[in-house]
Amino acid sequence: MSLENEFEKTWKKVSEEQHTIDDITDRKIREGINSKIRREKKIKKLYWTAAAVIPFFGLLILYYTFQKPATDIRQKYVYESRETPKAIKLSDGSVIKLMPYSKLTLNKDFGDKNREIEFTGQGNFSIAKDKTKPFRIDAGGFYVQVLGTHFFLDQKSEEKKVELFEGKVKVEHLGKVTYLLPKEIWISNSHQPDYHYYDKEKPMSFTFNHTDYSEAIQQLEEAYNVRISYPDEYRSKKVSGSFTGNLNDILSIISYPFNLKIEKLNEKEIQLK
């Protein structure tokens, strides 16, 4: 029974028995009962406050226990270049030339179980051969993996690029895998994602069977990632035969019957006239 109900019951009982209570006694009774009521309310308030606070701190403890990310305690080595290139020789014998404002990060235990690094910027890589431990580069958005090779990597330009000089390279980007052989190049930009083409000096074989000159030129453009312009009057001329050589060789052979001369405008454009 609450103190309020007990207070009411006491006064009803006194009234029924017609007892007379003087003013002083009346005041003492009231003050005693009110004091008990205040103590009970204070105890209830403390109880509910504690009941609310304890679960809150419990939730905080659980949050920091499960949500706080695990800290990688492994020590890392960081190499950076400033205005000038900087050559780094790793413990496995690999040599990496950092172009200006490039950065290389690897764990202290590099080479023990794997050869994994993080790279931003531009660099020339000469990777020591080790078939048991592939050299893997996290280039921020794509990965490059090699066993032992020499290549150029551009990670910071708008057009990402891997150009292979020796060996073999595997490039992984957005779930797609591209393999490169010497004098082959991989690029990725907003217009050409995962584009694989050949250095202009790489010998290739092409076969044309009564093919339009325009189609033969298009095949060369796609293979070597160049733009070739020529007089429109030769578009429908026919080309036949099997040819092997670099871009200049093939272009010279198929253009010879039309007496067209090659003029290199820049790295990406060639004009026939």
Rank of each mutant, 00 (worst) to 15 (best):
I96S: 02
P134W: 01
E118C: 03
N114C: 03
K103R: 13
F110Y: 14
T132Y: 10
A128W: 06
K131N: 09
Y143R: 12
T105A: 08
F119C: 04
D109Y: 07
D130K: 05
N124Q: 12
F142I: 04
E116A: 10
G141L: 11
G121R: 02
I127V: 15
K113W: 08
S126W: 11
K108W: 05
N124L: 14
F110K: 09
L147C: 01
N107Q: 15
K129A: 04
K129E: 09
T120S: 14
P100N: 00
D138H: 11
S102P: 01
T105L: 06
S94I: 00
D138C: 05
T120V: 12
G121K: 00
Q145M: 11
S102V: 00
F135M: 02
E116L: 09
L98S: 00
V144N: 09
Y101C: 00
P100C: 00
I127D: 05
K133Y: 10
L106C: 10
Q122D: 05
I96C: 02
K103W: 01
S102Q: 01
R115P: 07
I117G: 06
K97H: 04
S102H: 00
G141N: 12
F125L: 06
L147W: 01
L98M: 02
D112M: 14
T105K: 10
R115S: 07
D130C: 02
I96L: 05
S94K: 00
D138M: 01
G111A: 07
Y143F: 13
G121Y: 01
I96Q: 02
K131H: 10
V144C: 13
D138R: 03
N114W: 08
S94F: 01
T120I: 13
D130Q: 02
L106P: 07
L104D: 01
I127E: 03
G141A: 13
E118W: 05
T105M: 03
T120P: 04
L104V: 05
G140Q: 09
N124V: 07
P100T: 02
P100Y: 00
F119T: 04
I117F: 09
R136L: 15
D130S: 01
N114H: 13
F125T: 04
F142W: 08
F142H: 06
D130A: 03
S126I: 14
E118S: 13
G111Y: 10
L104S: 09
